[in-house]
Design a protein around this nucleic acid. Structure first.
Lengths: 245, 245
DNA sequence: GTCGTCCCTTGATCTGAGTCAAGGATCACC
DNA sequence: GGTGATCCTTGACTCAGATCAAGGGACGAC
C-alpha cells in the first residue's frame, strides 16, 4: 500500500490515481474478500439495472460508465459519470432508480458484496478512503446541482468542458504550445443528458463557443482550449482551474 | 448505544431518528472527542461561510438549516436541506463554495474537528453510520438532479411537497380523516432556490395545484394532501410513497 | 462503389418559465 | 388603530431553450 497525490499516474499499474491507487485498494479489498474478478462490458451494455440488488463493489479500470435516471415517459438525466478509478456500488442494497451503463468499452474490477462493518474493522484505511470518495462525489453532485438549476445553456457547456478537462488532467489532456486539448468522451446526446438540455441545444452552444473563439474543434470529439481562463469565465465559475496547471 | 428503525422517535431524547439516534451518536462521538458543545443560531444566521475551514462535525438537534451555492451575480441554488438528526461537516477541509444558513432558529450539536482516521479505528460503528448517511445523501442528491434537470415546474412543486412529507413523516405530518397535512418549512423564495425556479413560478404552480384539487392550503405554509397517489403522479415519480404509510 | 446507420448541425417555430410590475395579506410594533 | 416590513399572488410581456424538420458527414458492411 502506498500513497499518491490525487490524479497522478501510478508507477505500478496503468490506471489513474486518487490519493491511493485504485488497483492497490482493489487488491487490498479483494484480499479481505478472498474474491476478485474482472468484468468487461461492451459500449452500450448495462452494468447494473435499476432495482437490481447490488452484488458487488466495483472500481472502473478502463473506459467510462454513466449513471442515469429515467422517468416513465423517457426523460433521462445523467447523475453520475464514472471514470477510471471511480467506485460504484453499495453492497446488499438496491440502488433505487439508477442505471449504470458502459459508454465506452469498459473493464471493472469487482469484489463480492460484504457488509461495510467487516470492512471498517478489517481495513479502516480503505473504509476511510471510501468515505472520502463518497464525500468528494457529494461535493461534485452539489456543483452539478448548481449547474442544472441555475446556469444557462452556454454556461453549462463551458462548465462541462472544464469539468472534463479537470478530471482527466493526467490522462487525456495534452498541452501543446500553450493550448489545452481535451477528448470529449460523450456524444452530444449524452452531454445533453448530463446537462439537462436537448442535444440540439448542446450542438448549437458548442458551435457558438467555437464561433466566439472560446474553444476550437478538431473533429466532433476533440476540443482545444486556447484560453482556459476565458472558458472558466464562460462557465460562471468563480474558482480557478485548480490542479489543471 | 441502541438501534432504531429509520425516522422513528427515540424514547430517550426529543429528536427524530435515523437508524441510530443522532443524540446517541453525538454522545458517543463526543466521548471520543472529549469535547461537545451546543450552538444556537437565529433564523437567517450563517453557520458556515463558504471557504471557511470546517472546524467541526455537527448534527442538527432542532430547526432547519440549508446548504446553498451562490454565483457571482447572485444566482442561488440550494444544494442541501438539513433537518434534525442530519449531519454536516468535513473536519479539516474547506467546504468549497457551500454556505450553511439557519432557516429557522437552530440548535446544532458540535464536536471539534478530528481526522477521520482516528474515528474509523476508535468507533467503527459511527464511521459506518457516517458512510451510510453520506451514501443516502448522495442518493438524495441524485434524485434532486433529476428534478432540477428534467422536471417541469409543476412536477417540481409536487415533488418538493412529497419529499418534505416523506422526510418529516414522523415529525410534522398529521393524518386526520385520511388527509395528510404537511408544514412547509420554507418560504416561496427558498422553495424556488431548492427547485431551480423563481419565486413567482413557485407561487403560480402552487396556486394551480390548489385550483386542480391536488393540494389545499391552510395559511401559506400549511398544505393538506387529500390524495397522496395523485400528488405522486403529479410529481412524475414512479415509485410509491415508501414509508409514508 | 452505395447503402444504411449513427451522429451531428442548422433553421423555423413554439412555449414554459423568467422578468417586470402592481398590489394584497399577515404580522410585529409603536 | 396605523405603519412598515415581509411574504405572497397575479397579470402582461419577453425570451431561452424545446420541438419539429431537414439535411450533411463519417464509417462500416456488402
Amino acid at each position: 500500500m502506498h500513497d499518491h497525490s490525487v490524479h497522478v499516474q501510478c508507477g505500478e499499474c496503468p490506471i489513474r490515481h486518487r490519493a491511493v491507487c485504485a488497483r492497490c485498494e482493489t487488491d487490498e479489498l479483494s484480499r479481505l474478500e478472498q474474491i476478485k474478478y474482472y468484468r468487461s462490458f461492451q459500449a452500450g451494455q448495462t452494468v447494473i439495472w435499476s432495482g437490481d440488488r447490488m452484488e458487488f463493489v466495483g472500481s472502473v479500470v478502463s473506459g467510462i460508465a454513466t449513471l442515469t435516471q429515467t422517468m416513465e415517459d423517457g426523460r433521462r438525466q445523467m447523475v453520475g459519470l464514472l471514470l477510471p478509478s471511480d467506485f460504484v456500488g453499495r453492497p446488499g442494497r438496491s440502488t433505487a432508480a439508477f442505471d449504470v451503463t458502459a459508454t465506452t468499452d469498459l473493464v471493472m474490477c469487482c469484489f463480492r458484496k460484504k457488509p461495510f462493518e467487516e470492512m471498517m474493522v478489517a481495513t479502516p484505511h480503505i473504509a476511510q478512503r471510501l468515505l472520502e470518495m463518497t464525500l468528494d462525489e457529494l461535493d461534485a453532485a452539489r456543483e452539478w446541482m448548481l449547474l442544472l438549476g441555475r446556469k444557462t445553456a452556454r454556461e453549462k457547456i463551458a462548465s462541462l468542458i472544464s469539468i472534463i478537462a479537470r478530471r482527466d488532467a493526467a490522462l487525456h489532456v495534452r498541452k501543446k504550445a500553450g493550448v489545452l486539448s481535451v477528448d470529449l468522451p460523450l456524444t452530444r446526446e449524452e452531454m445533453a443528458d448530463y446537462l439537462g438540455l436537448t442535444l440540439e441545444t448542446v450542438s448549437r452552444q458548442i458551435s457558438a463557443l467555437k464561433k466566439d473563439g472560446v474553444i476550437s474543434l478538431e473533429g466532433n470529439r476533440h476540443v482545444s482550449i486556447p484560453n482556459l481562463d476565458r472558458l472558466l469565465e464562460e462557465a460562471g465559475d468563480d474558482s480557478d482551474g485548480g490542479m489543471l496547471v
